[in-house]
């Protein structure tokens, strides 16, 4: 028995390199299992306890803070190259409680539970009094802006007809009065110029997703829309490592019907294809 008041766990510095390795493994795991929204990046390690694990290894019990980046979870850009969403863009924080097993020098995530929350309106106003605040993604004006932007995009497209997959975030801009929206689209088997009945279009078997940013501005007697979309290169479906050690196909319909498949564990670098701009 060890001397002194043995509490069962070891304490490490939150900035200990081993602690950071465990935290980065947890963030990577969380990002690979997000089904919508944006990748998160490690901001701060709040707490860490290291428990011995029988018969081998040790378990890092941690609390970590993350920040939303501007990279969508379907974006193959490596996390290290993803800019953090700034305060004036209405930042979003994540709070995670994770258990990470270290065994034979390897980190494996056993569990992860995260809650995300936007910065308070008061805090945004402090740094940027005129900045637009996040609004619910199902806001009527937001949905209209996304649909109008996608229609404009398809009207200018010489390729596939794209369908709306997800509205990822949106802000109502006070001056000039406009709606800013970021959304995900997916290519269908229809040709954009020839579509007559959208309900007959099907998503491609090799899913091809795109990410769009649009601003819809109200004008006297009408509205104006500006949209830019980035189409991601088709990504192979790879088995996703699970906490219980089994592998699961990312797009397995038994798990998440009709949900976009998460990006691969090691996405190819520099695989972005820039689509048309309207």
């Amino acid at each position: 028995a060890p001397h002194g008041p043995w509490v069962g766990y070891l304490v490490l510095n939150c900035d200990d390199p081993e602690t950071e390795q465990a935290a980065l493994a947890a963030v990577d795991y969380v990002n690979r299992h997000l089904l919508w929204g944006f990748k998160h990046i490690l901001n701060q390690i709040d707490k860490v306890r290291v428990w011995p694990r029988r018969p081998f290894g040790e378990v890092f019990e941690m609390e970590i803070d993350t920040l939303e980046t501007t990279c969508h979870v379907l974006d193959p850009t490596p996390l290290a190259n993803c800019p953090v969403r700034q305060l004036h863009e209405h930042a979003v924080e994540g709070d995670c409680k994770v258990h990470v097993l270290k065994q034979d020098g390897q980190f494996h995530v056993l569990s992860a539970k995260c809650d995300s929350s936007p910065d308070s309106a008061e805090d945004v106003r402090k740094v940027c009094p005129g900045c637009a605040l996040l609004v619910p993604r199902n806001n009527t004006a937001v949905v209209h802006a996304a649909e109008a932007a996608l229609a404009a995009f398809n009207a200018q497209s010489n390729g596939s007809y794209f369908q709306l997959v997800e509205i990822s975030r949106a802000q109502l801009v006070p001056l000039p009065e406009s709606t800013y929206v970021e959304f995900v689209v997916a290519a269908t088997d229809c040709v954009a110029k020839e579509v007559t009945d959208q309900s007959q279009c099907n998503l491609l078997a090799d899913k091809q997703y795109g990410f769009c940013k649009a601003t819809l501005t109200k004008k006297l007697g009408g509205e104006e829309v500006a949209v830019t979309c980035t189409v991601f290169q088709t990504q192979p479906v790879v088995p996703q490592p699970q906490p219980d050690g089994t592998n699961q196909t990312a797009s397995s319909p038994a798990v998440v019907p009709d949900a976009p498949s998460p990006p691969p564990a090691s996405p190819p670098a520099a695989s972005l294809v820039v689509g048309p701009m309207v």
């Binding site: 510095n13 939150c14 990046i41 490690l42 901001n43 701060q44």
Partner: peptide, 27 residues
């Protein structure tokens, strides 16, 4: 620590430092 010469000063492991550094900004 300040001590008289010849007087032993208790030294132990530094307490762990948590929370860790903020990499970007605090929300």
């Amino acid at each position: 620590s300040v001590a008289q010469p010849g007087v032993a000063v208790a030294t132990g492991p530094a307490p762990p430092v948590c929370p860790g550094r903020i990499r970007y900004f605090k929300v």
